[in-house]
């Protein structure tokens, strides 16, 4: 019987009927939203309302000089190992895409090792380098390894060597993302291969490299916290030191977390700004795929 009605109504002239939303959907999504807010407030209430967190301690230590020193150390570790890894990462990427099989294998082995072992293990290893290599002979000078490997240098070494392996892959991915046609076009107008790489391929590769490198930088910023195990006084090392004396463990961890959030947020803003700048004038449109030969 319904089919008859359908056929009849479809015969009417004039504009079609207006379609309304199903009434139940909106009520349901409102209910879910209210429930979600209740859960979030409930959890926040447990944390804040427990009364055991001394907020004044957090305020007191947040800008304390010793804390600011720790923040500075974290920033230094991040910036220095990132800059150094840009250099070593580029070198490794060049080795990996070179025609020389020996260089290619060496670079691959490096990446295999440094990506395949945990960063924490690497950091502890560098800190204990003196155990199996007591002296370093450099250009005729003999230096005791232990005088060279401090908590800071070991941290830098561990972070930079590790992040270089990831940086290499980011740079290589960026270079490979640029179509070979770009290189050919650059060569065809008379550029040398080196100039084609620097003037045509690299500027395009940067747009792929920078967002990925930005993620790497933010990961690195947080990974610097691992070096507290070898006694480096960065953010986590500093708050652990303070908590060991005043026993406000949770409060000091909140101080550390807030600082990491601040640093990561600032870094994310910088990354978005860079990406927006790089995207100017460039759409995602690609030429149509080649038609198969007739």
């Amino acid at each position: 019987m319904t089919t008859t009605t359908d056929i009849e109504s479809s015969r009417t002239t004039g504009p079609g009927p207006r379609i309304h939303r199903r009434p139940g959907a909106r009520i349901f999504s409102t209910a879910v939203a209210v429930l979600a807010i209740a859960v979030v407030l409930g959890i926040a209430g447990i944390v804040v309302g427990s009364g055991t967190i001394h907020w004044e301690i957090i305020a007191q230590y947040f800008f304390a000089p010793v804390m600011l020193n720790g923040v500075a150390t974290t920033l230094m570790l991040t910036v220095v190992s990132l800059a150094a890894s840009a250099v070593l990462g580029t070198l490794l990427a060049a080795m990996r895409i070179s025609g020389n099989p020996v260089l290619r294998t060496i670079a691959s082995a490096y990446i295999w090792f440094f990506r395949g072992t945990p960063l924490l293990v690497q950091i502890v290893f560098w800190f204990n380098l003196g155990l199996f290599l007591p002296r370093l002979d450099i250009a005729g000078f003999t230096i005791s390894t232990n005088s060279l490997i401090t908590p800071t240098t070991a941290a830098l070494l561990g972070l930079f060597l590790n992040v270089s392996a990831f940086m290499c892959e980011v740079i290589r991915g960026g270079l490979l993302a640029v179509d070979t046609g770009q290189t050919e076009a650059a060569l065809s107008i008379g550029m040398t291969p080196r100039r084609a790489l620097l003037r045509i391929v690299l500027p395009q590769a940067i747009r792929v490299i920078l967002p990925a490198a930005g993620n790497l930088a933010i990961d690195l910023l947080k990974a610097t916290s691992l070096v507290y195990v070898i006694g480096t006084k960065e953010i986590l090392g500093t708050v652990q030191g303070i908590a060991a004396q005043n026993f406000y463990v949770i409060e000091m961890l909140i101080v550390a977390s807030l600082w990491y959030l601040v640093l990561v947020s600032v870094a994310s803003l910088g990354q978005s700004w860079l990406e927006a700048r790089l995207a100017r004038g460039i759409g995602a449109a690609q030429p149509p795929a080649a038609r198969p030969n007739l």
Partner: peptide, 21 residues
């Protein structure tokens, strides 16, 4: 490279530089 500067080439897939007008 110096020889190529005197030879023009037009490609199937155009190969224009996307970051340039």
């Amino acid at each position: 490279a110096s020889r190529r500067a005197r030879i023009g080439m037009v490609f199937q897939r155009f190969n224009l530089f996307p970051n340039m007008t």
